[in-house]
Computed example of a mutant assay.
Amino acid sequence: MDSGIGAMVEAVGEARRQLRENALPKARDTSRERVPEKEEAELLKALSGLLEAVVDLADAASGRMATGDSRETYTKVVRRLRDQAHYLRGDAAKVAKRVGGAG
């Protein structure tokens, strides 16, 4: 894959692997204590940031697609994911405000 897509796919795969191996086990660990209220919004903010990075990647790649149909698909993906990142950021702010954190 001389187009650089291989490096992009590899980076996304590494991020997915890191999440599954490092973050997910901690989230599933029921023996851990509850999250302190002041920290409840932090994961939502982190998820929003991760989604925003995915949006940036999809947006940057969209203009490089060879076919109009693929460019259109990427444009739709960017819009949908950007909306979701925005919702997550708003939800994080609401949670932070509710629990008295710094939103």
Score class of each variant (00 low, 15 high):
M1G: 15
R71D: 02
V12M: 11
A7K: 14
E10S: 14
I5D: 14
A92D: 00
E21H: 11
L50W: 14
S31D: 12
R16E: 13
R80G: 04
P36V: 05
P25H: 08
A58F: 02
V54S: 09
R98D: 08
K94R: 15
T73I: 06
D29S: 04
R71T: 00
L50V: 09
Q84N: 11
A41E: 00
A93T: 06
K94I: 05
D83C: 09
A102M: 08
K26T: 13
S48L: 02
R98F: 05
R82H: 04
L44K: 07
M65H: 05
R34Y: 07
K76I: 03
A66H: 05
L50C: 09
V99Q: 03
L44F: 12
K97N: 11
D69H: 09
G103Y: 10
K45M: 10
E33T: 08
L50D: 10
A85G: 02
R79P: 02
D59S: 05
G103L: 11
D29R: 06
D29E: 06
A46R: 14
A93S: 05
E40W: 15
L47S: 10
A23G: 05
E10G: 06
E14G: 05
V35A: 11
D69F: 07
R98P: 03
E33Y: 12
S31L: 11
G68E: 08
R64D: 13
K97G: 01
A15H: 06
A92F: 01
E72G: 03
G103E: 14
R28W: 01
M65R: 12
R16W: 11
A7H: 12
K26V: 14
S31I: 08
A58K: 01
G101C: 02
A15M: 04
R34W: 07
A60Y: 10
R20M: 15
S3N: 15
V77H: 02
L19Y: 12
A96F: 01
K97H: 10
G103R: 11
A61T: 13
P25V: 04
R80Y: 09
R80S: 07
D56N: 13
A53G: 15
I5K: 10
E10P: 07
E33R: 15
T30A: 11
L19A: 04
M1E: 13
T75V: 12
Q84Y: 15
A23C: 05
V95D: 00
G49Q: 08
R16C: 10
L43K: 11
Y74R: 01
A23M: 05
V9G: 04
D91H: 14
A66Q: 07
R64W: 11
R89E: 06
R71C: 00
G63Y: 06
M1W: 11
R16V: 14
A61D: 10
D83F: 13
G100A: 03
L81G: 04
L24G: 03
R71Q: 02
V35D: 07
M8T: 09
D83W: 12
D83R: 15
G90D: 08
K76E: 04
L24E: 10
T67W: 00
G103C: 08
A102C: 06
G13P: 00
R79W: 07
V95K: 05
E37N: 15
R98M: 04
A27Y: 14
D29W: 06
R82T: 00
P25T: 06
T75P: 08
V54A: 13
R89I: 00
T30C: 06
V9M: 09
P36G: 06
R79L: 07
Q84L: 14
